[in-house]
Amino acid sequence: MRNLKNYNLTLLSFVIVNLLLVGLDNYLALSMDKLNQKTFIKLLPLSSIVILSTIILNGALSSNLKYKLVFLKVKNPLPASRLYETLNNDYRVTIDQISEKYGPIPKDPKQQNIYWYQKIYKPNQDSEKVYDIHKKFLMTRDMTAICFMIFMFSIVYTLFSGTWLHMVVIFIELLVIREVAANYGKRFVCTVVAESI
């Protein structure tokens, strides 16, 4: 089975950009004439720090908390927990088609997720379309979590530095990425259903 979470390079790039926004730009703002062997040796530990930061930031929050950040739901935050509502907004399939093939969709949000996962997702998880959208969803979900953590650090940094522009930029970025992840989550659920019909 292919690795859905094979997007570490993207997350690493994302962390680098955000760390630059928070304040490492002062550390890296070197003019070309100062770029010499000694400078490179000083910067070597920075690359290790960024790689470790990416691993730590991505692992600091549980999957459940990441889903809560993306969907802004405390109870039943998984994307298929709103299966009935999500499918009502999809033009490719109807609720009747799903009910006819898999039985009626439960009313309870937790049961909706179980229904979707066991009856619809598991048999179709190897579809190329499902794999692609699932990977995009997980990547943007993780980017949302990392952005949230960096935003928290930027608040502390702002208290000591007195500059707040980077904090506003990261907050806007967090809102945009969260929305993208939520959209990918809904598309993931709908794509699985469409592939199953």
Score class of each variant (00 low, 15 high):
Met1Arg: 13
Arg2Gly: 10
Lys5Val: 09
Tyr7Asn: 00
Tyr7Ala: 00
Tyr7His: 02
Leu9Ala: 13
Ser13Met: 13
Ser13Tyr: 13
Ile16Tyr: 14
Ile16Pro: 12
Leu21Cys: 10
Leu21Tyr: 08
Val22Asp: 02
Val22Arg: 04
Leu24Ala: 07
Leu24Arg: 09
Leu24Asp: 10
Asn26Ser: 14
Tyr27Thr: 15
Leu30Tyr: 06
Ser31Ala: 07
Asp33Ala: 05
Asn36Met: 08
Gln37Leu: 11
Lys38Trp: 14
Thr39Met: 06
Ile41Gly: 08
Ile41Ser: 14
Val50Met: 01
Thr54Cys: 10
Thr54Met: 04
Thr54Tyr: 12
Ile56Met: 05
Ile56Lys: 01
Asn58Lys: 01
Gly59Ala: 15
Ser63Leu: 13
Ser63Phe: 03
Ser63Ile: 11
Ser63Met: 10
Asn64Val: 10
Lys66Ala: 03
Lys68Val: 12
Leu69Cys: 07
Lys73Glu: 01
Lys75His: 11
Leu78Trp: 00
Pro79Ala: 05
Ser81Ile: 01
Leu83Ser: 03
Thr86Cys: 02
Asn89Ala: 07
Asp90Ile: 00
Asp90Val: 00
Arg92Lys: 12
Arg92Ala: 02
Ile95Cys: 00
Ile95Glu: 02
Ile95Ser: 02
Asp96His: 10
Gln97Val: 08
Ile98Phe: 00
Pro106Phe: 08
Pro106Ile: 11
Lys107Gln: 05
Lys107Trp: 06
Asp108Val: 08
Pro109Asn: 10
Pro109Val: 02
Lys110Ala: 15
Ile114Leu: 09
Tyr115Lys: 06
Tyr117His: 14
Ile120Tyr: 04
Lys122Val: 07
Lys122Tyr: 02
Lys122Ser: 09
Pro123Ala: 04
Asn124Arg: 03
Gln125His: 03
Ser127Thr: 10
Glu128Thr: 15
Glu128Met: 12
Lys129Phe: 06
Ile133Cys: 01
Lys135Ala: 13
Lys136Asn: 11
Phe137Arg: 01
Leu138Pro: 06
Asp142Met: 00
Asp142Cys: 07
Met143Pro: 02
Thr144Tyr: 14
Ile146Asp: 05
Phe151Ile: 11
Phe153Ile: 13
Ser154Gln: 05
Ser154Met: 12
Tyr157Ser: 06
Tyr157Phe: 15
Ser161Leu: 04
Thr163Pro: 04
Thr163Ala: 12
His166Cys: 10
His166Leu: 09
Val168Thr: 11
Val168Pro: 03
Val168Trp: 02
Val169Asp: 04
Glu173Asn: 15
Glu173His: 15
Glu173Arg: 14
Leu174Ser: 12
Val176Thr: 06
Arg178Pro: 03
Arg178Asn: 04
Tyr184Gly: 00
Val189Thr: 06
Thr191Trp: 00
Thr191Ser: 09
Glu195Gln: 08
